[in-house]
Computed example of a mutant assay.
Amino acid sequence: MAGGPTGEPVPVQETVNTEKLRAILLMGGVPWNELEDGVQQVRLKLLEERSKPGQPLIRNPEAWAAVVASRIAVDWHRGRARDMGLRERLSLLWSVRPPVEHPEEEVLLAQVVAEGLERLPAQQRQALVLRYYTDLTVRDIARLLDVPEGTVKSRLHHAVAALRTELLDVEGI
């Protein structure tokens, strides 16, 4: 935390140069529509760093924020590559199955589920699709996403609860 002239903490907005962070994120390949999210992630990490007890002050918050912004850009690319790989595997999986005619009720249910999936947060949707559409185990999903198994279980629990609520709200299902 950088101190002001009187030694009190300086607000995060004044500690980091937002335009510089946007430029770093943009040069790192983060799309325009996600720049503000990246800036907020940098600010959040700065606040987290400042709130750690016994943590020494960040000597140069602007340089620290620039490094964090570049790491966020790298993480964005990793996530994008992971999503693209997943999309390719899913499209291969679905391309080998022949199309099947379904009764109207099943089509309606599929549409409601698809709309519910679209409304889920990306991480919950990803876990749900990997578990129930590709039949991966929780352990496999955790390894694939590089997260603990408990995180996968939590995401699945919240996603299923949200979809259940949505399905119960729809009449006739």
Rank of each mutant, 00 (worst) to 15 (best):
E8V: 10
V67T: 11
S51A: 14
E49I: 02
V112G: 03
T6R: 12
Y132T: 09
P31D: 07
P31M: 01
V112E: 13
R78D: 07
K20S: 14
K153Y: 09
M1A: 11
L44N: 04
L117M: 14
V170A: 14
V112K: 12
Q111T: 06
D146C: 00
R80I: 02
L128I: 14
V170G: 06
E62L: 08
E105H: 09
V138L: 08
A162R: 14
G3T: 04
H102Q: 14
L25M: 02
E171S: 14
A159N: 01
L109F: 15
R82A: 09
P103W: 00
V42L: 06
E149I: 10
E171Q: 08
E48R: 11
W76H: 15
Y133Q: 14
V16D: 02
T6A: 10
A2H: 03
D83F: 08
E8R: 11
N33W: 07
R119L: 11
A2G: 06
R82E: 11
M1S: 10
E106S: 07
A69M: 05
P61Q: 07
S154G: 13
P5C: 02
N17C: 11
K52E: 15
A66Q: 01
S51Y: 04
L86G: 08
G54P: 14
R131V: 05
V10I: 15
P56D: 09
K52R: 15
A162P: 05
L156D: 03
V39H: 03
R50V: 05
R82D: 11
